[in-house]
């Protein structure tokens, strides 16, 4: 088989899947769907990592991939599912203002990201350097999702998606971070989601809603 042509194609496939998923998450109204999209995004990160690991022979990347699979594709989605069940928001629909505008802004962000990533990928020697722009775009899109959402759970998902994108960026640019750092980040994310879960219960107890606009009342005048 002719790997030389195939490998970059595979990587680009996963990368573009991530980008499309990021856009999909940006415009998705249903919380349940959002979790599914997030799981898919996790799986594409795993796929991309596996490809890079296989091509470059970096064995620690297999561990990274396994860890990501366990955490991002199985454990956290499962936690989120449990969370929305217990909070009883499984079928909630969020009203999103002006999806077309958000899409347009998203496209602008992608352009900016590619523009930014250009000089950085010149420096990188990785085979996956072409995908750095996409990774950066995913980071920005996830960030934007956090900004535009009004409910707590989609914000948390935005945060996790951003972490996914960062992980992808690290893999793309430098074959992944050192194992210790990755383990640390994985643990952080896990702890973070637990704490945020507790917070959500607290928020709902206080305000009878998960709408974070209620937090504005906390501002001191």
């Amino acid at each position: 088989m002719d790997f030389d042509g195939l490998i970059p194609q595979l990587l680009n496939l996963f990368a573009s899947a991530m980008l499309i998923l990021a856009f999909a998450m940006l415009s998705q109204r249903r919380i349940l769907r959002l979790i599914h999209l997030f799981t898919l995004q996790g799986l594409s990160v795993v796929g991309a990592t596996l490809v890079v690991a296989w091509v470059t022979g970096q064995h620690h990347l297999y561990f990274s991939a396994a860890l990501t699979l366990l955490l991002k594709a199985i454990l956290i989605p499962w936690l989120l599912h449990k969370l929305i069940d217990r909070l009883n928001v499984r079928w909630d629909i969020e009203t999103l203002l002006n999806i077309p505008t958000m899409m347009l802004v998203g496209i602008v962000l992608v352009i900016i990201a590619f523009n930014l990533a250009g000089p950085i990928s010149q420096l990188s020697g990785s085979i996956a350097r072409g995908t750095l722009g996409i990774a950066l775009a995913c980071v920005l899109l996830s960030f934007m999702m956090m900004i535009t959402r009004a409910k707590a759970i989609p914000q948390v998902i935005g945060f996790l998606a951003m972490e996914n994108a960062l992980f992808f960026a690290a893999t793309a640019a430098t074959y992944g971070m050192p194992m210790v750092v990755e383990l640390g980040i994985a643990l952080d994310v896990l702890v973070g989601i637990l704490i945020l879960g507790v917070f959500m219960f607290q928020i709902r107890e206080q305000f009878d809603s998960l709408d974070i606009r209620h937090l504005e009342k906390l501002k001191e005048d």
Binding site: I112, N115, L116, P119, L136, L140, F143, M144, M146, I147, T148, R149, A150, Q155, I212, R213, L215, E216, K217, L218, K219
Partner: peptide, 25 residues
Amino acid sequence: LQQGRIAIYLLYSFLTLLFMLLMVR
């Protein structure tokens, strides 16, 4: 600057991030 809305605070950090990235560029 202290609006009390999380979205606005996130926007601040987003804009800061963009600004920093452009500086690096």
